[in-house]
């Protein structure tokens, strides 16, 4: 057992965990944040994607002890002050989700992608970069539309900020 502290959605969380505990288990079972999902156990599906120190990672392939001292953002921490993040809003408006199981991971991966590219995204890039997040319901069509729309909003907001 090890005592670790991880700051999740802005709140430091200290727990004693078995060394074999995965970060996703820490998030779901120790903290009860069940918005982060497990879909495959082999880092293939991306349902467990969270932000670890600002970068999108698959939390089923990180040991909780390895994340000791880190900052984690989960889907529950994405909306600020009750206002949905643009990516969440775009998934809603473009019907980018059906069963909703892959959605938290899909959104967390998309937020990171838009940030890394400063919103400069085209369909080919979005499709290439989302390859590690599997959705079985939507055929990706509306997910891609949603990400491009949110990227456009990101560009517009940053253009305004730069003026």
């Amino acid at each position: 057992m090890s005592r670790i502290t991880i700051t999740v959605n802005g709140t430091p969380q200290t727990r004693d965990v078995e060394d074999r505990t995965l970060l996703v288990q820490f998030i779901r079972e120790h903290l009860g944040l069940t918005g982060t999902h497990v879909g495959c156990d082999t880092t293939q599906c991306g349902a467990c994607t969270i932000h670890l120190d600002g970068k999108a990672v698959k939390s089923c392939t990180v040991l909780a002890v390895a994340a000791d001292g880190s900052q984690v953002t989960t889907i529950e921490g994405l909306a600020e002050g009750g206002k949905l993040h643009d990516v969440q809003q775009a998934f809603h408006e473009h019907h980018g989700l059906q069963c909703g199981y892959c959605t938290p991971g899909m959104i967390m991966a998309s937020v990171d992608m838009i940030r890394r590219h400063d919103g400069m995204l085209d369909e080919h890039t979005v499709r290439h970069e989302l390859e590690g997040n599997i959705c079985r319901c939507t055929g990706y069509h509306n997910i891609v539309k949603a990400v491009l729309d949110a990227a456009e909003k990101h560009r517009a907001a940053h253009a305004v900020a730069a003026e």
């Binding site: 999902h37 969440q88 019907h95 909703g100 938290p104």
Partner: peptide
């Protein structure tokens, strides 16, 4: 019409079996 069920699913408040 965009879906009523989206609100909980895009904010991590879905209620799946293992939850």
């Amino acid at each position: 019409i965009p879906r009523k069920e989206d609100g909980r699913l895009i904010t991590g408040k879905g209620r799946f079996s293992d939850d």
